[in-house]
């Protein structure tokens, strides 16, 4: 009996592509999701809901993701630059992250707070808070400025340290020996 169940299970798994338990769990998921969706229909907002629900996935996967990926590639794309030897190419990685981090963090804050920064909900905001949204653009710019300044400072310190390290190796190495590139 037990072996027959096992055979049936293996047969099902072969046809279905996974353990039958997998199907059971997923059916439970769709049942709950379907029930919640039926409530959306009852609430009378299903059209907008579906548009937003599918739109959310599409906007992330086919708009936001390509946008920041292409931006990242574009920043590093310098067609006029001559190809460099590997040692220098490795050095190139050092500056990009000092741009990526402040730009990325600033963009992240804007992604979240753009309605406040661009004053898009001014009327409802004033009705609720009894103040206007004027300060937010300045605050976002301030945080962005601090991020860039911090990044520039960190890069300057790094360059200085690298130079100091190179000096030290050059001085330490005997004449005739090629200097090592410090990291």
């Amino acid at each position: 009996m037990a072996s027959r169940v096992r055979t049936l299970r293996r047969w099902l798994a072969g046809r279905y592509g996974a353990d039958p338990l997998h199907l059971l769990v997923l059916l439970a998921c769709f049942t709950l999701a379907g029930y919640a969706a039926s409530r959306v229909v009852l609430a009378g907002v299903w059209v907008g809901f579906v548009v937003w629900f599918v739109g959310a996935a599409v906007i992330h996967d086919l708009l936001l993701y390509p946008l920041y990926t292409v931006a990242d590639i574009a920043v590093q794309w310098r067609p006029w630059r001559r190809p460099r030897p590997p040692a220098e190419a490795a050095h190139r990685a050092s500056w990009i992250n000092y741009v990526r981090v402040p730009v990325g963090l600033s963009a992240l804050l804007l992604l979240i707070w753009f309605p406040l920064v661009f004053r898009l909900s001014e009327r409802t905001y004033r009705a609720s808070v009894a103040l206007d949204t004027t300060p937010y653009l300045g605050r976002w710019l301030l945080v962005t400025g601090v991020l860039f300044a911090g990044s520039a400072l960190a890069y300057a310190i790094r360059l200085r340290r690298q130079r100091a390290a190179r000096e030290r190796t050059r001085r330490a190495s005997r004449p005739g020996n090629p200097p090592k590139i410090g990291h």
Binding site: V45, P115, L116, L120, S121, T124
Partner: peptide, 11 residues
Amino acid sequence: IQLFYTVFPFS
């Protein structure tokens, strides 16, 4: 939380 209700086609 930013009271940007105008974009919602639902409550």
